[in-house]
Structures are given as C-alpha cells and as structure tokens.
Design a protein around this nucleic acid. Sequence first.
DNA 1: ACGGCTGTAACT
DNA 2: TAGTTACAG
Length: 691
Amino acid sequence: MPVARPETSDARVIAHVDMDCFYVQVEQRKQPELRGLPTAVVQYNEWQGGALIAVSYEARSCGVKRSMRGEEAKAACPEIQLVQVPVARGKADLNTYRSAGSEVVSILAQSGKCERASIDEVYLDLTDAAESMLADAPPESLESIDEEALKSHILGMSREDGDDFKESVRDWICRKDADRRDKLLGCGIIIVAELRKQVLKETEFSCSAGIAHNKARSYLFCMFLFPFIASIMLAKLASGMNKPAQQTVVPYSAVQELLSSLPIKKMKQLGGKLGTSLQTDLGIDTVGDLLQFSETKLQEHYGINTGTWLWNIARGISGEEVQGRLLPKSHGSGKTFPGPRALRSLSNVQHWLNQLSEELYERLSSDLEQNKRIASTLTLHASAFISKDSDSHKKFPSKSCPLRYGVTKIQEDAFNLFQAALREYMGPFGTKPQGNKKETWRITGLSVSASKIVDIPSGTSSIMRYFQGQSTIPSSSTSGCPQEHVAVTPSVSESCSEQKSVETRASIPEEDITITYTSPDLDNSYRDSDIVLEKFPCQDASCQSNEAKEFPTQSGTQTKTIGRKINNSKEKNRGMPSIVDIFKNYNASPQARQETQEDSTVSLTSNRGNLSSSTSHNSEVNQEVEDRRDTNWGYKVGEIDQSVFDELPYEIQREFRSFLRPNKRPNAGKSKSGDGSASSSIAHYFQPLKR
DNA sequence: ACGGCTGTAACT
DNA sequence: TAGTTACAG
C-alpha cells in the first residue's frame, strides 16, 4: 500500500569525483621530480612527438592542449616535460592508470554507493552518510569545519572578499534555518572534503568534486515515483567548474539558473550529434531554451524516448541513479593502424590479434583472480578500407563468439572471427590480397574485447579451488568455426612470420579448465545439478584436440563437457547450458545481487602498496537501501492496471510519464506514435528500478 | 590518412 | 542475440 516515504528519503546527496589530469598525476607520483612542472603524457613518440593524452595544469596555462602533438606542445611550452605512456606488446598499455584508478575507487567506495564511471571518475551517492551526519553530528554542532570544506564553491553564493569567503561558506553550511536539502548538502560538502583529503593522503592524487542533490517532486506517490532533480548530471557539471583540487556545490536554489544559461552541448549526452541537431534544427543554444518546446514536439523530432528525456532534463529531472558498480563490465584491447601503417596481410593481422589477445587475456586473468569474475563473450572489432578507392568506406562487421579462457584460445578465436568478418566485408572482392585485382583490404584498426562478465559464486563453492588459469572447451573442428579450413590448422600459424612471441608468454601457465556438470539425466534442468569445474593441463594432448570431449569427474558420475562453439546457431539451446547460464542461475537465486553494492566486496588491488581493501562492512548499509527500495515497491508494477492510472489526477499521470519514461516503447521512428500504443497496462510505463 | 584507447548504453 | 551506433574521457 502506498505510504509516503519518510522525509529522509526525499533529498539525495550525489557527488562526482574527477581526478585532475589523472595520467599526469600517476606519472608524477612515479617521478616526483616532475611535480609542479608543466607535464604531459604522450603516446607513440615517433610521429610528431606523439599524441598528448593528459596535460598538467601548469602546461595548460602555457597554452598546451590535449590533442596537440608532442612537438606542438614543445613549441607552445618549451620547458614541458613529456612522459610516454607505457608500451607493452607494441601498444599503449594503460594498466598502470587502471590500477591507480582502482586505488581511488577503493577509498571512495567506503562512504556510500559508488560507481566507477571511467578510469578517473567516480559517482557517489552520499545520502546515507549525509543523513547520519545530520542526525548525529550536524555541522552547526561541530567546533570547527574542515578547511578544505570551507574552500568549497557554492553556486549562487556571492563570493566577494577572499577573507569573508570562508566565513560565508561556514555560515552556509551551518545555517540553522536552512532547508533540509541544503543541510544535507552541507554535510555532503564536509564528507566530500574529507574524502578528497583521504584520497590525497593515501594515493597522492588530487581530485575535484561536484556535489548536488535531488529532490522528489511527488510526495503523493513517492514510494514508487522518483522524479529526481538531475543530480548526477549536475554533480558532474559542477565538478568541472572549479579545477583542479576544488569542489563545487549546487544547491537546489541554484539549479534553475545554472541550467537556464547552460550551453546545450555541455549537458552530458548532448555533446555530440544530438546536441548539434538541437542547435541547428531547433535553434536551441541553452538548456533553458529547451523549456519552450513541448514534450510532443521534442518527440516528433527525436523519437518518443529521446524526446521525453530531453523534456525532462530541461527541467532538471532525471531518473539516473548512482549504480553500485565498482568494476568494469567489459575489457578490451585495441590498436589503430592509421594510413600508411594499415595492415595488409593476414599474417600481420594475426600477429597483432595475438598481441591484443595476450593483453586481453592478462586482464581477464587478473579479473578472475582478484574479482572472481569470468567473461563469456569475445568480440572482434576492426576498421578497414579497400585500396584503390571503390567502396572505401564500408563498415567492417563486428563478430563475436563464446569466450574460451586461454591465450591461445582467444588468439585462435579472434583470428577466426576476423576471417569470418573479412569474408563478409570483402564479399564480391574475395579475400585474396594476392589476386590480380588491385582492390584489396587494408586494416586500420583492430580490437578484441571481452564482455558479459559474471561473478563466479565464491565462498562455499569449491569452484575456485579448481581455478588457476583458464577454462575452455575445445571447439569443434568442423561446424564450430567460421573459417573451418583455417581455424586451427598449423599451416596458418606457420604462415605467420611475426607471431613468435606467442609461445614465449611465461607468466600464466597454459591450462584448460573445462566446466562440466554432472547430471544423471541430461535433459533435466541443470540448476540443481552439481556443477564442477575442473582443470586440465594443456600438456595433455587431449586438450589440443579439436573435438569436444567427455571427461570423468572426480565423483565418477556421468558428466558431459559443456561444449560451446563459435557461431553456433543450432546447437545452442540443446540442453547444454553455457557457463554464463550456470553462473547466472547460481547468482540469481539467493538475492538479485548483480548490480548491488555487493560488488564492492571484491578487492580492488593496486600495483602500489597494499591498498587493496574490502568494503564489505558498508555493503550492509547499502544493501539495506536496496532492500528498502525493493520492498517499498511492494507489488508487481505489472499488476497496476491502466484504469488505476487513468483515475489519477492529470498532473500525477504526467509525473508518472515524465519520470518513468515510456521506456522500451518501440521507437517508431521519429513519428509521433498514436499515443500509449494501446498499452493495456500501466506496467508499460515502468521500467524496472534497476534496468 | 591520424586523436588513441577504452568503456557504457540504446537501438534494431 | 548479435551487431551497430552514439557518446564520453
């Protein structure tokens, strides 16, 4: 039954933390003598001094900009220090930055729901922490306010004299007659200042932050309605307003004005074509300009979903929440081969795919080791053109297949995927570069990525005991591979002159882990069967066979290898659960835990010191939040009938629509679809809370 | 024919 | 689902 949410749930406190010129800071920590000097991180030094990917603030003040070449930077700022990004396997290696980012996340994750937005950005939902603080130790009760907090920028607050400035910040934070939302924001200021200091102390990295809140607009049905002020966007906006090493707050009272004059392209998601279209097609230059357009009008131009979304963000409304996700959902390794460096032979492509696959596998291995997660899909992307003009700009298709753990497996599969895609790409041309025709392919970019990463049930499960390196199911020699004749035959390998390094990889032993399940009856549901993961050293010749095999399990009961085949369309659902299915089932049962703060219990390890930390203690707190939300829902949204909806006051109906965007309604082009598309139930308007 | 390398999400 | 496209840092 609908119950008004307690007041404490109305306003939330969201922070966006953004590391200052992060790669530069990482390099400066490694080489402290660079601190304070104009510095830039550059990759691929050979051509025009390489490309800048991060620029220190000292260098920026000399006019150095990202996406200058190294030589330009030298010209603009002769004393600039250029540091090269590490190179491994012939390509840029961002791992040091990744793990430096993890150091930061592991600190920030301790104070609330935390989302790793990118390698150097984090969102925090500090609502709980702010509420506790307000209840237990409100700012006005404190003897002194942190200096760092007093340096905050508060939008809408005049800051005239430098002297009185901190005083007025203090007053704002401690104001007794403040709105509850502002009080919470005041707590947020103090918490974020503290966090930033902690990050600095423990990692030596400085960062900037934006703090904003949201507010439930509907008090009536707020138990299932959360029309939020777009705090995530606002927090992000704010974090960029004062850099480096500063924090900015957006009180509710400042939102309107901030948005009204905000250039439309500064809004997240509007920095690209959509933003341009708003400008040129509708003459919209600021977010404020958007207000003049009706929802219907926007839907006519941009489709039902985007139109509604635009209408909402113009009013500061967004359903976005901080996701409790600390780990990436995919890993990828790629490289471009621009212009004259484009790859023109299969063996060269194979060489690079081998390099990329190695790196990918290395990262998959540490993900497995550190986070007990496995990826289940391997995808190959490439970009290409065809020499001698013709149809030069055709898209090179992406291809994916089940991911088999093991370097050589990934290398093999990646190469097979490539060849399958190449055939498709070339079509009538044929794939032979040696052919008489001059039309032949050139590869300008390659990447391999791993996705659909799922947790391995840890704890009581014995699975991890068997896990050391990799798992795989030998692929079928015939039907499985997209390019049968080429798939695993030694001749292809030998024909590649550049791939020697593959076999010299040392650190991770090449073994197979085969996932098997024991079941007396193969047609039974596998859910209840005993899942066993076994490893088979690859030295065993049987592993190198191309045929799916059966292995005995420890228990000796009948087992079946879970065979997965590349591009296998027909056999997929023939009683053979994929590893993903198994783990998904396993994970789903106790609690839907996939996107919850539970993720934070993984250890984030860094390459520097022992900063790996577990935040399980506070996952309970957050779990509580999740539970409250879930149980507050109280009933299945699908059970809400349209008639109930129709009886609501129009304003409320509108709020329903505006927040619960008519999601997943088929985007019938850009035409204004008839209306609710004959949805018989209000459920149509709901999206599950967590996607 | 240069911005390189990642990563997420929505759409179809 | 698999593949494409947009967006962002």
